[in-house]
Design a binder for these strands. Structure first.
Lengths: 180, 180
DNA sequence: ATTCACATGTAAGCAGTTACATGATTTT
DNA sequence: AAAATCATGTAACTGCTTACATGTGAAT
């Protein structure tokens, strides 16, 4: 049910349509919670039923109508209640690690290639996060409240991607030394 | 379907029962793939149907009978095929980040407490991983093949937990400065 | 003409979680 | 007497993915 709360957080920052939320999940929210438009529309439907959000249909000029969702009192209360509830850290499930661990049975070269590819993907994501940080938080020292929290979450993404790149570099070094 | 492949990797290192596999997933395999006994039994059943593994019932002295599973030719081939296939990095879904991002709506103190709790959990996991490394890989320089791969996967866990602890320390510092 | 951005959905299927279920032996 | 370890399962439910489905207007 975390998706509902991620949506509440986003809508409470600014009201918007399902489509707009999907765009936000592709960008800013994407670095801590991933969601497709199918999931988002389904969740919004549920949240209207629960009366967590209200829905206004808005006619647009030269564009299809849209439904703008807003967080209601019950939604804000529900979010506050959820925030106070402890959660477990996410369960660890890393497909690439399964592949590395199984490399001996198959083609080790292929797995090394795959590690190199992931190294590149993570390094690209890291670059994107750092660009966002430079653009949106040029002076992180002075931040407070909501902006501080937004920056912190981005920092989490950056530190996590840095760790991935370091790990995969280490992996490539020792795997290639072992091969050649 | 990655669970099936994680099981194949484990069984190919050593044959074992569902119960034994569940123990392995609680320990060594747990730092790159989590699985409950319910999942494992279900997957083993499927894998027998697919003829990826064979199953022998073994009577034991003073203990319930057990079923020992072994990787067959088809299973080894299937694992090799899967190893060669590229996969995407896992989708990012971090509940704690949602909470940090939403902290303003609720009780910020409560969220800070939760961050401190997660900091401790990750630091405990990090200590456990480091202990495993010292115990099982006292001389990492000389490793090759399967042992090298096992060590690399553990290194991934260590670097990832280090990043989490760093991030949560950073978060606690700035959140507490912002409060007080 | 085709592709892109806008806009909203349904439905089948798969993976994982939670709860339920049973029973022997060993340790405290 | 109670709890822990060994041992194997079923079933309902939740959440996410993938595929399908439709339609407008603007840009190339």
């Amino acid at each position: 049910m975390s998706l509902e709360y991620a949506i509440l957080v986003s809508l409470q920052e600014r009201a918007g349509s399902g489509y707009e939320l999907a765009r936000r999940f592709d960008k800013s929210i994407g670095y801590f919670w991933a969601a497709s438009h199918q999931q988002i529309y389904r969740s919004l439907k549920r949240m209207v039923e629960l009366d967590w959000v209200s829905c206004d249909e808005v006619a647009q000029d030269k564009r299809p109508d849209k439904k703008v969702y807003r967080v209601g009192e019950a939604g804000a209360a529900e979010l506050a209640r959820w925030l106070a509830k402890p959660v477990d850290p996410p369960t660890i499930r890393n497909e690439l690690s399964v592949k590395i661990r199984g490399a001996c049975v198959g083609d080790v070269d292929g797995v090394v290639e795959e590690v190199a590819r992931h190294r590149q993907l993570h390094s690209q994501r890291l670059a994107a996060f750092r660009a966002l940080e430079r653009r949106d938080f040029p002076a992180p020292e002075g931040l407070s409240g909501q902006q501080l929290h937004q920056h912190l979450v981005l920092r989490g993404g950056i530190l996590s991607e840095e760790a991935m790149v370091s790990w995969l570099d280490e992996a490539l070094t020792v795997l290639r030394a072992d091969l050649g």
